[in-house]
Design a protein around this nucleic acid. Structure first.
Lengths: 219, 219
DNA sequence: ATCGAGGAGATAGTGCCACTATCCTAACAG
DNA sequence: CTGTTAGGATAGTGGCACTATCTCCTCGAT
């Protein structure tokens, strides 16, 4: 198929497709001549994935490129694919990206949490630092973000992660699974957040209103 | 305190504070004279909240303003506060923001899910449309996003929402609770996402690698 | 009283990002 | 042979979040 057809079938303007080609988000088509290239279904799928990652997943073009590059490395196993995708997903922000002030116990709290859940060897992935940063922010604002606060979140997320891996495992190893890892990691994030907010609406609606809805579990 | 002290104690440049004042993210200080204003601890707290929402929560300046405006409306009860914060949080994107193609069963799936969880009256909040959009995206990419896919997410998120509401209820109704609603709604989102990814890393690391890690629960 | 530091307010500029528009040239189709 | 379309390069656009500068003002120390 031609560029124009790719554009028509994906809904993405040709100028934008050219831009994605330039940026390496989309592999070049098969050159038929100096002024004609042929694109296949794979291009269409990839293009749709790119658009979803950028528009639904809220990722930047540069990060999207890195994620896809990482996922294209066929030498990685599933664990490493998740890892590579993750690293790319948040720009590999390490400890330096967090700026803990002295006395912040955020990292300590996080370590305790991970220990409690047996997630010990996860101390150097970008998500770890993202978590430390978020906890530090909450603390800085005066919200106690201790184990008791984090535990329900970790407990909730564990079966989700297990389920995600199981789902990904259904895809045949190779290109398809690579794409599935990226798509499901990123595109289920809005699902998770939206459901949490819907649940907020439901739970707050079904509680006695106006005052504190629960007192029995106060510390 | 003066602008410069506010800047020093918050770490935000004075030019940026002025910008926030202009944009209405920060209420003006108490005017002492034509060229001097006094800021209080409340300003410092608010400023830190704004920075957290923007930098940690990834919100735009405009949305942050709307959220804070909504939260400042003291006539709302807790349920409505969550609602107002939510509406502001995602720009009130209604059905028109999603662009379902004909034949998309995303909305149907979502409705079924909400019915199954008894979250029936939540059909018009922005989060609902965010969810429909995300599900539609997954479908468009060829990932089956049916009840079986969504159920674990909804099940995971329900106790989290319950916990969130309970935590918010601990704060004295008024300014503090308003701020808590905003801060905890937004700033716990990175916590949730980071923990999911950490759990991915852990779960994938602890599974037999390379091939499908689980087959027994296949549909 | 004077003078200098610093704040308030207005306006313009910066850097980045995700496109988008315009050229030009080269085919392919009729 | 020619009009339409593709590809490639380059430059421009618009939005956003600041950031820099400039002017005027006033407070406080000398």
């Amino acid at each position: 198929m031609r560029l124009s057809e790719l554009s028509a079938r994906s809904g993405v303007p040709t100028a934008t497709i050219k831009y994605y080609l330039r940026e390496g988000l989309l592999p070049p088509g098969e050159r038929l001549s100096a002024s004609r290239s042929e694109y296949g279904e794979a291009h269409l799928r990839r293009l749709r994935l790119v658009r979803s990652l950028i528009q639904v997943g809220g990722m930047s073009v540069a990060r999207t490129k890195d994620v896809l590059r990482a996922a294209e490395d066929e030498t990685l196993d599933q664990h490493e694919q998740f890892g590579a995708a993750q690293v790319a997903l948040m720009g590999g922000g390490g400890p330096q990206g967090v700026a803990l002030e002295p006395g912040a116990k955020a990292q300590e709290t996080v370590d305790e949490l991970l220990a409690e859940f047996g997630w010990e060897q996860c101390g150097n992935i970008p998500a770890y630092w993202m978590l430390v940063g978020a906890v530090a922010s909450l603390e800085r604002l005066g919200y106690p973000c201790d184990l008791a606060q984090l535990r329900p979140y970790a407990a909730a997320v564990e079966p989700v992660a297990r389920f995600d891996l199981e789902v990904v495992g259904r895809y045949p190893a190779g290109d398809e699974r690579l794409e599935a890892v990226v798509a499901l990691t990123v595109l289920n994030e809005p699902v998770l957040l939206a459901l949490r907010r819907i649940a907020h609406a439901h739970v707050s609606g079904s509680m006695p209103q106006g005052q504190a809805p629960a007192r029995q579990t106060l510390s």
